[in-house]
Design a protein around this nucleic acid. Structure first.
Length: 526
RNA sequence: GGCCCGUUGGUCAAUCGGUUAAGACGCCUCCCUUUCACGGAGGAAUGAGGGGUUCGAUUCCCCUACGGGCUACCA
């Protein structure tokens, strides 16, 4: 609703970008599992790129060597590939703007940091961690519980603003560790235009002198994101709302580096929240028992394991679909979208500004809808994996496809196929005889024995014959078929579920049908 | 604490100042179904509060409240 006032602005940005290629990027740091919010950011990037025939870039932000986790990059790639969100450019897909890992671009950043120092927009700072901590303690008051390194404090710290040229030169030549910090103007109004929120105002008095280049020579996110977005010709930058408060730093950097007219259109996406309303985190998954990550994630070093949506039994089609509708909606009543449909309908102006709580019940509903929609053929490989993992061997794919089409409406998550399809391939080991016993009598026993005799002699094992004989014998013995259906079902499937009993009998075959009836009869008579 | 963002049923949400305030999930009732589902028909449930602006505010503005985000040599 807040979007319409900006319609004119959108047309403007749209027109101006018509002439150049749309380029977007997803820039995760390889520090662990890829969670819902991350995948949704990828999705929106991807959809926007597809819609405008642009390019979707994957850039790995591995500038924090202390948090780097082996295997995390491959894991991210695997998640994207499972979701069908394949980058046009990435460390593995290549591209003309590489390298796509920030650690491999290390030297580029220094150059720009030094340039900023030359221009007077940044400075060297030699403060040790202890000195920084001391500063925070000294300036800490009730009104200001977390003082920052900025205009109010920087002149009392150890940096090239306070130290004098000689001293700075000496420290640098002696290789005393230092960082480069941006020099934020003392009091300046900054207006940042966000495609989702409109104009957002900041007073630089509230912004601190962020570190741009760390003591280890690596850039921080702030420097790297600006330099790389510029060098990679990014036109639209989508990221989570948690970045909004540092956006003024980025805007200033674009300006100081002299690139402001190339600055991408910003869009800060609403956060995905847990059931308690706080930013969704791994914690929520543990607490409420639903997955947070796209796929299973194992952190060998920490010995942590976190379940993923894929392994929980979600289809990528459903996962993408439910994520797309968290924070965006088409304005119509359509809720089920394929990736292609999403790419066609997606529109930045219909992205919400408020955060959305994740609802696992609704997530399951999406999967159920996709299960109903997809064919047995499409589902075959996935169902086979589930069955095989549980010791159900399937040799006849055609039969499984038939079975899947019969039972998929009854499944919500993939593991449900074990119960719903398993008994078509293996004789039930547990039979719910307790549901038969209360109404079991000699007459029913007689019926099933007669049924067995007839079935053993039957030539044609088709559904009609099976049903016809069943009803004829019931009528001869004098029992309502209704009283016999449930026992038969339980004998064949083991419990009170599944499609039509005669369909089941037909599919599992004469031998198996009579075998299962005999098995249960002996259980009942023992 | 400061700054920033946000606020329509329990949840996701439509609404471009005039509607009986859509729809979906979940919940409840009924129908269909000789099981379980699917499907169908109904039901309960919403504009945070207060001020403006206006003939008329859920919609525009302000204040308050509440929620969230940020406040690292992490992203």
């Amino acid at each position: 609703m807040q979007n319409y006032p900006f319609a004119a602005e959108f047309r403007e940005t749209y027109l101006c970008i018509m002439s150049k290629e749309i380029r977007v990027r997803f820039a995760p740091s390889p520090t662990g599992g890829l969670h819902l919010g991350g995948v949704r950011t990828v999705l929106y990037n991807y959809l926007f790129a597809k819609k405008h025939n642009g390019k979707f870039v994957l850039r790995i932000e591995d500038t924090d060597q202390t948090r780097f986790v082996e295997g995390a990059e491959q894991y991210i790639l695997d998640c994207l590939s499972w979701c069908g969100l394949i980058p046009d450019e990435s460390p593995v897909h290549g591209g003309e703007f590489g390298p796509y890992r920030q650690s491999e671009r290390k030297e580029m950043y220094r150059e720009y940091a030094e340039l900023l120092v030359e221009k007077g927009h940044a400075y060297y700072a030699f403060d040790t961690p202890e000195e920084l901590e001391e500063m925070r303690q000294v300036f800490k008051t009730n009104e200001n519980p977390s003082p920052t390194y900025g205009h109010a404090t920087r002149m009392r710290m150890k940096n090239s603003l306070t130290l004098g040229e000689e001293e700075v030169r000496r420290l640098l030549s002696e290789e005393v560790p230092y960082v480069i910090r941006i020099r934020i103007p003392e009091s300046k109004q900054i207006t940042l235009h966000d495609a989702i929120r409109g104009d957002v105002q900041f007073d630089t008095a509230q912004v601190d002198d962020k570190v741009l280049l760390k003591a280890d020579g690596m850039p921080t996110y702030h420097l790297a994101v600006v330099v790389d977005d510029y060098l990679m010709k990014i036109t639209h930058a989508f990221r989570g709302e948690e970045w909004l408060s540092s956006a003024p730093v980025h805007l200033l950097l674009w300006r100081y580096l002299g690139w402001e007219e190339h600055m991408p259109v910003w869009a800060h996406l609403p956060l995905i929240l847990g059931p308690d309303g706080a930013k969704l985190s791994k914690r929520h998954g543990n607490k409420y028992g639903f997955p947070i990550f796209a796929m299973n994630w194992k952190d060998e070093a920490k010995g942590e394991f976190t379940e993923g949506f894929r392994e929980r039994g979600f289809l990528p089609e459903a996962f993408i679909n439910l994520l797309a509708l968290m924070g965006w909606n088409p304005g119509t009543e359509q809720e089920i979208f394929s990736l292609e449909e999403l790419a066609g309908s997606f529109d930045l102006s219909r992205v919400h500004s408020a955060g959305a709580q994740f609802d696992f019940e609704k997530a399951k509903w999406y999967n159920h809808e996709w299960l109903k929609k997809l064919s047995g053929m499409r589902l075959l490989p996935d169902v086979k994996i589930i069955l095989a993992a549980n010791g159900v061997q399937v040799d006849d794919d055609q039969k499984l496809i038939t079975v899947i089409d019969m039972v998929k409406d009854r499944c919500t998550l993939m593991p449900d196929f074990l119960q719903q399809a398993g008994y078509f391939f293996t004789t039930p080991t547990a039979v719910d005889t307790d549901s038969i016993k209360p109404k079991w009598d000699e007459k029913k026993n007689l019926f099933f024995n007669e049924l067995l005799k007839n079935y053993d002699l039957t030539q044609f094992w088709d559904k009609e014959t099976i049903e016809k004989e069943f009803k004829e014998i019931a009528s001869v013995i004098g029992i309502k078929t209704g009283d016999l259906m449930l026992p038969l079902r339980i004998m064949l499937v083991g419990g009170k579920y599944g499609p039509g009993v005669f369909d089941i009998a037909h599919i599992i075959g004469k031998e198996e049908t009579t075998l299962r009836i005999r098995n249960t009869l002996s259980l009942l008579n023992s």
